[in-house]
Design a protein around this nucleic acid. Sequence first.
DNA 1: GGCGCGTTAAC
DNA 2: TTAACGCGC
Length: 366
Amino acid sequence: IEVFNFLNTFGFDEVAASGDYDEYAKNRDRDISHILPFNFIDDTYIFSPKEILKSDGSPYLVFTPFYNSAKNNFKALHLREYMPAKMKLFPFRSNFDFEEFPYFSKLSKEILDPKLVLDSFDLDRYQSLKEIMSIRGTSRLGAHLRFGTIGIRELLRYLAKQKKSGLLTEPFFRQLVFRDFYAYLLYHFPYLSSQNFRHPFKGIPNEFLHSIFIKAKTGVPIVDAGIKELLETGFMHNRVRMICASFYTKHLLLPWQWGASFFAKYLLDFDEASNALSWQWSAGTGVDPQPYFRIFNPYAQSAKFDKDGIYIKQFLPNLKNIEAKILHDEEALFAQNLEDYPKPIVVHKESRERALAYFKGAIRKI
DNA sequence: GGCGCGTTAAC
DNA sequence: TTAACGCGC
């Protein structure tokens, strides 16, 4: 606000800016519009929220029909390029001390030179590598899209170019449309950032369990490794996010809003829509009518996507001498007596049955 | 009104 | 297989 008051004294006519649709963003843009006329440009996501609608004019609630419609409506217009500014207000020099913040010191080079991220992104092998936690198979572009250091249209033009040279771009494009879908849903249903779409499940608040989770002391290696990655780097591999969110909402039966706030605080690529709606997806409270009884088994997940335990051991060095097989074996973990690593706080089978009972009970209460 | 189907699974 | 329901056409 101070910045815009300052600009106003220089005689600026208007602000033209791209924005997003969460409450904070809407309030921010409204406050700015009271100082200078505010011209909102749809340039944060691929589509404007009113561009993709059902034939009756209402918004889609299911991704696949949304995606099909999005592909049909995708035009050259969505690759549009704006003229770069010829003038700068004043030379910008950052005094930000990257070393003071552990994540920033690790990411600073990339943040300062986004091209490094694009260059190191193996788009062609994205589909086959993105699930392997120990491999840098995902794009890592989320933080750039958040801060605008790479724009969505710039990224789309990059994809179009790669497609021309024969690379497989569709799987990654699909994920970008997912990002759009979540922003679109938040635009049409603003309450989704804090409230369930339909289901009555509220979770059972328990600050003790929450504190164990955020301290990476659940005793479930893949969950704790994920939390460590988040705390140490400001990033968490997407599949691990799902495993942690499933564990939090199903095994611990905690309110998804608490988990979402924790992620919001630490994720450098935080996006209100993607974060809240992905947590709702995990909790089974979102727009997705998929069965709520689909509960991730964290041990089966790490056995499948971190077979040799490389990811787990990277973030839980205490476990570096433990055989990988044991890290994916609940019984074996209960049998271990480790000085600096706790036993699991829950038994998978029991938690699963408890969650199923909770959800069945909550459903009957309607 | 009917019918097919749904990002990411588990047992 | 499971068990389930509302969306989208």
